[in-house]
Design a protein around this nucleic acid. Structure first.
Lengths: 131, 131, 131, 131
DNA sequence: GTGGTCTAGACCACG
DNA sequence: GTGGTCTAGACCACC
């Protein structure tokens, strides 16, 4: 699929899966009514324990992003896109805030932080993997 | 002292202590030869179990930031400042990179990410706590 | 398993565990990819507090001998054998050096030291416990 | 004096002092009736906490190696030499045994251990410090 | 007084 | 089930 899971990321795998699916819905890669790959399929593809995927789906179901369809699997729910677009912004914002909070508290001055941001963003756009 | 520990932060307490001390050394608040508060003192001040502090100090010792002095306590080691300045930048950089990687991968466009950065940084400087 | 822990040895228990595992890897008893007994299993078997074992494993992880596998346990890491063979020799060498240094410095002459070595080695091979 | 103290040796400093004095008596460097340097002198010379030296002297007094002399200090006791010669051999022997026990248990074969002994002994005689 | 080690037991996150 | 973190409290060695 469209997933980019990093087991050594600090972020729990189940949460990475949750986020990736939300981002896919927010970006229109998945739209209301689409069938999401089954737990087993995803687990096999991502080389992850099926329980982990199941936990992700459970979380997505509680958030109203996915709906279980008996005998079929999970479908993207009505109104999921708006919710995902909103959550995407919020998830990224929180991560940004928490990082900047530590940067600020660490005593780095504003110029250095700005510079780090520029460099990191450029590196990310170039597709580096060193984070 | 100069500590800002948040027990409900996700980041383990012992790691927060490690980082704060590295930042203090990087910023010149602590310099080579300075005696760091004893395990018991710090534990009492931060209302944290002494074992947790001991774990932080052990980690700092392995990194060559602190040196144990028998019967005295821990002292800031030779060359600690350079190392801490380096590590501070690296710790912040990694956090920045990993956040931006997720932002990029989430499909947010460059303008939105830039805007989030501006807003978040302004909020952090204003001292908000909403992250 | 293959452990010989002596709680009244002077050497900390967690360090004895670390060494025994390194020796096991060096000797080929454990090979890359092998799953090491879980913290709880080992603790139960050796009648040691789980935290103590956890500390040993943490140390072995930092040395690159073991790798944690989420939800599974610890596995012997790639390249562990070479490292362990090297460390085994070094650990024994250091112990030998430090003992001989004291012997030399104590004023015992060479013949006496040689003789003590012969006698001790013979005793160890006979399996005596008087040290 | 004739001391060779290594604070990072694992062996407690007070015990190193005890041993060194016993070795000096065993080797005839100190003989019955000789006055041993005062606690303060030794502490200053070895850059060690005076309490540590005091503890060493206390131990030596209990062993009958030193005798306190009011207003003078500590003197080497009657019969100390024989006792020290005996203890010297025993102390070295124990250290040898414990090292060889670990070597044996580590799986190193006899040839390797013999070789390590040769190399280490040669290095010690050359006066190396790497242990 | 200092740090080092160990135990006991709890709770959590993860798979 | 796994390891990770934290607390509480004990005992020890050392200075």
């Amino acid at each position: 699929m469209f997933f980019d899971i990093d087991p050594a990321n600090g972020v729990p795998i189940y949460d990475q899966v949750v986020r990736q699916i939300k981002y896919a819905v927010a970006g229109g890669v998945l739209v209301t009514g689409d069938r999401v790959p089954s737990v087993r399929e995803l687990a096999k593809e991502l080389v992850i324990n099926p329980n982990t995927i199941a936990r992700s789906f459970q979380s997505l179901q509680q958030d109203g992003i996915l709906e279980p369809m008996r005998g079929v699997g999970f479908l993207v729910a009505h109104g999921a896109k708006g919710e995902c677009v909103r959550q995407r912004r919020e998830l990224i914002r929180q991560r940004m805030m928490s990082g900047l909070k530590e940067a600020h508290q660490s005593g780095l001055n504003e110029d250095e932080i700005e510079k780090l941001f520029r460099q990191s963003w450029a590196a990310v756009k170039r597709g580096e993997k060193s984070a």
